[in-house]
Amino acid sequence: MKIFLLAALAAYLVAAIHSVLAFLNKRLLLERVSLVALLFGFTMHTTALIVDWLQSGNYPLFYLRETLSFLAWTLVIAYGVAWCSYRTQALGSFTLPLVTLLTFIANVVGENASVAHGVITEGQAAWLFPIHTTLLLFAYASFFVVFAASVMYLLQERELKLKTFGAIFHRLPSLTTVDDIGSTAVAVGWILLTLGIFTGMLWSATRDGIFWHNDPKEIFAVLTWLLYLAMLHYRYIAGRRGRRAAWLGIAGWGLVLCTFLGARLMGGYHVFN
């Protein structure tokens, strides 16, 4: 299992380096190498997750190591979907380094033995927990795509407004394309987030009888949910798009990070020990 994750890491590293190089000097060959390496890495990664699941008998999404690895995996899927629909290689230059970093950490981090796995595998509706976490990680991956698209939008818009085109200008996809990617990803991400929060509440309600614990992770999650709801409204209903929507996409990612990491530091119900 470890060997598969290592192989995935190596392939992701190759893919990330080639993707960034392709972004800088736009050689077609580099893009192909990057895609092939990514496909190989993804296959290895999927195998690692399945083997992990079969060996331990637990859904491979609980410990920090597993969570990071799973997040990297969902990011690759999100990038894959975006690449298939828009052929935007540039997105890879943002996503793949993060994927590589997450996979690297997943490779070096050990399992925290003090964390009690039993907490989530016992009791009624235990099956809801993996669905809850999986949905949320896919939501995070979508929001990262929104973030990357927003950054690309702002870079591109700035260059067009200032009319001074740097080296990366020719590498970025068009404004309309990144705007489309962003608005699609935000809709997908928000739906996943809604379902994820909902399943979490359901799980908690059947297990403990309450669905709200007032812990930092929950509060941040609701803030994130509200912000992306505002962004959806802003884009689809008020018809406002462009620079301000892009800034919302970046702010949203900040909140996602707080939800994901911040809550770990602040403790509360979502820290299992």
Binding site: H170, L175, T176
Partner: peptide, 18 residues
Amino acid sequence: SAVSISYTAVELGRKIFG
């Protein structure tokens, strides 16, 4: 990259609209 006025207009259009 474009080196005439008309092609530059087309190129910039593509940067905005795809």
